[in-house]
């Protein structure tokens, strides 16, 4: 058999769309991520969960190539992201869609122009084709009726749905979601959750979801990684996670105030701070 070489793996043969091995990353001297190993199978919907500030958004940025790994490797669609040239990175990103925490819609463009943005920038499709595609994308999130509004006129939930339509505008292979549920009312939350699942399956895409909303994401995802203080502490399918007896996971899922994550920030004893002397 001819040696294909490890550098040029064809996309079709890759079953793991994202592969992270022994990743270390830090801002300055402070390590944020330590020895991360993570794989995302093609076609699956994976959640990365953890407390605020545990490094999960950083992990997402590493997958999107906005940050560079210090040690270890990040592979997306069979390509190493380390030391990738700007043009290669941009070529790869065209196959990626990303939805940001609060949507990050372009405030100076209408809803329609936001969704059509990448088609205008990256394709030479005729205006009528772009119009049809854009309306289809907006229809998929149920917001064809707001196409002429500006982002500032939308509610938080609608803005998030428009952002979803924009992230999927070019039918990406991999969709990244940064806190898609943050700050949403229960109904919008359910709607976004369903849409994420539906779009992932309809487009045959792969999705990575960074969130701390346990109940909603456990309903829709295939696999979960738990990150705490820069380390993956648990992983498994939603059923395994729900049944997990790990104290941290248990505390996280059931939202208990005290547990392995202590309620009290480390401090001297109360008596000491109040200046009481032991009798």
């Amino acid at each position: 058999m001819p040696d294909l070489g490890s550098r040029h793996v064809s996309v079709v043969s890759v079953t793991n769309l994202v592969e992270i091995t022994e990743l270390n990353f830090g801002y300055g001297s402070r390590l944020v991520l330590k020895g991360i190993n993570l794989t995302v199978r093609k076609g699956s919907l994976v959640a990365i969960m953890g407390l605020s500030g545990c490094g999960k958004t950083t992990l997402l940025r590493l997958i999107g190539g906005q940050l560079q790994a210090h040690e270890g490797s990040v592979m997306v669609a069979g390509q190493h992201l380390n030391n990738m040239s700007q043009s290669d990175l941009y070529a790869l990103r065209r196959r990626l869609g990303m939805m940001f925490q609060f949507g990050a819609l372009f405030t100076d463009l209408s809803v329609y122009d936001n969704v059509a943005f990448q088609m205008h920038e990256h394709t030479s499709l005729s205006e009528s084709v772009i119009r049809d595609l854009t309306l289809m994308k907006l229809n998929a999130v149920g917001l064809r009726g707001v196409q002429s509004l500006m982002p500032s006129e939308l509610s938080g939930g609608m803005a998030r749905r428009v952002a979803l339509a924009r992230a999927t505008a070019l039918d990406p292979e991999l969709i990244l979601y940064d806190e898609p549920f943050a700050g949403l009312d229960p109904i919008s939350l359910g709607v976004i959750g369903q849409l994420i699942r539906r779009l992932n399956d309809a487009l045959g895409a792969t999705s990575i979801l960074v969130t701390h909303d346990v109940q909603e994401s456990l309903k829709i995802v295939d696999y979960v990684y738990f990150v705490s203080e820069g380390v993956i502490v648990a992983q498994g399918t939603p059923e395994q996670i729900r049944a997990s007896t790990l104290p941290f996971v248990h505390q996280f899922i059931w939202g208990e105030a005290d547990g392995p994550m202590p309620f009290h920030y480390p401090a001297k004893t109360m008596a000491n701070d109040l200046g009481l002397r032991e009798v």
Binding site: Q66, Y90, R93, F100, A104, F106, Q118, E121, H122, L176
Partner: peptide, 17 residues
Amino acid sequence: LMKATEQLSAMEMMAIN
């Protein structure tokens, strides 16, 4: 503001400088 609301990052992720 575009930077603060991640619009610039979003653009970069869309492979647009």
